[in-house]
């Protein structure tokens, strides 16, 4: 067996304990992963910290990813934990330019979980996998004492072959590139918030959980060489994903605030609760940075796929303000759009 040389790790994480915000997908999550986990695992593949790890196997490039799901409640309008677990991993692969070819699933189940609940979730996973054209080929099952987890947690692992026409790298992003968003934001996060029933708010809203591969695939068939970067803006929302891009590319991202597609219900809930929709999680949308010359063709391609009609160009890449995301309103007011700080909606996926 060969041992890999291990350079002395440089851990930079001072928080004394783990808090919910470390799992919220914003700044604290990023500090935990970059400051503690990545330095200890230190390797070149992980250092990229993208949605999926790119591995070269037998001359071909593969994307691999794992994602855990702890959403509460287990079922909500538009989906459930099982469906999320399949779509979440399929989407992490999709925004890495790979169609999911196989998934694995690991379950942590609580003693006392009704079999009907488990069966419903396994069926939801089977259906979502079949819709995404992928098989679930393996996994694991563990049971913990009653009260040790909220019913069930699911972890999925996925692998897919990366489309050879594509090179995704934040450093390839150029000023003038456009920001493409696949559809209205915030549906998932707000749906979960309302489904918890802790607020006296109701809205006709459902989670946007779906595979984004059909849209990504259409985009790649149209202009793969103009696509520079993709992300699915889950926890932490569009604002957090774009801040990561701004940081990793060294460039500024400018958003036209009025262009960001938003359902009336999500906008209303966010206004009432003081939340920024740009920080709310999505489970069926993706962001792409596309070269200016192909931006309109890219948009048309995504819109031509059923369910992609809401796609919009929401912003552009500029040299300034470097490493920041700036929102511009229709009347010329500007604001810095920061990453999510803290934890507005815990356990949404």
């Amino acid at each position: 067996m060969t041992t890999i040389e291990r350079p002395p790790p440089r851990v930079r994480f001072d928080d004394a304990q783990i808090e919910m915000s470390h799992g919220a997908g914003g700044k604290a999550s990023r500090r935990l992963v970059e400051g503690l986990i990545a330095p200890l695992f230190a390797n070149a593949v992980l250092a990229k910290l993208s949605d999926a790890a790119a591995l070269s196997l037998g001359g071909a490039a593969y994307a691999t990813t794992a994602d855990s799901f702890v959403v509460k409640p287990l079922r909500f309008p538009g989906g459930s934990i099982g469906e999320l677990a399949v779509n979440g991993t399929v989407n992490d692969l999709a925004v890495s330019g790979a169609r999911a070819e196989a998934l694995m699933a690991a379950f942590i189940l609580e003693a006392g979980l009704p079999t009907t609940t488990l069966r419903a979730e396994v069926e939801a996973m089977a259906e979502a996998a079949s819709r995404a054209g992928v098989a679930i080929v393996g996994g694991d099952t563990k049971v913990v004492e009653h009260g040790a987890c909220d019913g069930m947690y699911v972890t999925t692992f996925g692998v897919g072959k990366i489309d050879g026409r594509l090179t995704l790298d934040p450093r390839s992003v150029r000023t003038g590139d456009r920001v493409l968003l696949s559809g209205p934001i915030g549906d998932h996060g707000i749906t979960i918030l309302l489904a918890r029933g802790e607020l006296d708010l109701e809205a006709d809203l459902s989670s946007d959980t779906r595979s984004v591969w059909p849209y990504v695939s259409a985009l790649l068939d149209t202009c793969a060489d103009s696509v520079r970067w993709m992300r699915d803006p889950t926890r932490g929302g569009v604002a957090t994903s774009l801040n990561e891009l701004a940081r990793d590319s060294g460039l500024g991202i400018v958003l036209y605030e009025e262009a960001v597609p938003l359902r009336r219900e999500v906008r209303g809930a966010c206004e009432i609760l003081g939340l920024d929709p740009l920080h709310i999680a999505n489970e069926g949308q993706f962001l792409a940075i596309v070269a200016e010359r192909d931006a309109d063709r890219a948009l048309a391609a995504v819109r031509a796929v059923a369910g992609g009609e809401g796609a919009t160009l929401i912003g552009e890449v500029r040299a300034e303000p470097a490493r920041q995301v700036l929102g511009i309103s229709a009347y010329g007011g500007t604001r810095v759009i920061d990453m999510l700080v803290g934890d507005p909606l815990p356990r949404i996926c």
């Binding site: 970059e34 801040n243 990561e244 940081r247 490493r323 920041q324 604001r335 810095v336 920061d338 990453m339």
Partner: peptide, 13 residues
């Protein structure tokens, strides 16, 4: 001010 107007070096995440 920090969230919306601070244009200095962003605090590293």
């Amino acid at each position: 001010y920090y969230r919306y107007a601070h244009r200095g070096d962003p605090v590293s995440a």
